[in-house]
């Protein structure tokens, strides 16, 4: 590579960096506004009847729980549980009686076509709605085919969320592998 080509390459890289930074900066306010709108809409869906969601500090022992929002009709609990390929962050709506009212997976790195199906598998996620207390794969909850570890991790997150409201004891051990 001669000097002229080196200058082209370096210039292209600098230009690309500038484009990314400027785009990010220009869209920052839009991103913040949309994130707030989306969060509010999602929480209202997870917890019917909830209007105002106030963050609460969690100082309990369950390491799966990372954030809590209190609303008029219950709580939205964020949990992060290790799945097959990485942590699975999910929000679970739980009403005042400890019954799960909704569930959504917010972030995951699971395998495409297997664990990643949990993002959109309504029949799997719907099994948790209406449950109280411990939710366990194989005990009333069917796992996603080929994604047992992912399924168990999501069930563990739901159990932690429900237990926060009911006060039940929840195991915070690592997600079990195997059938």
């Amino acid at each position: 590579m001669n000097r002229k080509e080196l200058a082209w390459s370096a210039g292209a890289l600098v230009l690309a960096c500038l484009v990314l930074v400027l785009t990010r900066t220009a869209m920052a306010s839009t991103a913040e506004r949309r994130a707030a709108q989306e969060q509010q809409a999602m929480m209202e869906t997870l917890l019917p009847g909830g209007v105002t969601f106030t963050p609460e500090t969690y100082d309990g022992e369950d390491e799966n729980i990372t954030a809590i929002w209190k609303s008029e009709t219950g709580y939205v609990v964020e949990t992060v549980v290790d799945g097959y390929a990485g942590p699975i962050r999910q929000w679970t709506g739980v009403d005042e009686s400890g019954s799960v009212t909704g569930l959504v997976v917010r972030d995951m790195e699971e395998t495409l076509g297997l664990g990643r199906e949990a993002l959109t598998d309504v029949s799997f996620l719907g099994q948790f709605v209406g449950t109280r207390g411990q939710a366990a794969v194989g005990e009333g909850v069917d796992a996603i085919t080929g994604a047992t570890v992912t399924s168990k991790a999501i069930a563990k997150g739901v159990s932690s969320a429900a237990a926060y409201v009911t006060g039940a004891d929840v195991s915070t051990s690592a997600t079990e592998w195997g059938g």
Binding site: S9, L13, A16, L20, A28, T30, R34, Q39, M108
Partner: peptide
Amino acid sequence: LTAVLLIAGLGAVIAGALVPNVV
């Protein structure tokens, strides 16, 4: 490589801003 990574990066930035819940 710069062109490909720029396009991928722009996609991530724009998607993250317009669709916050995208995974």
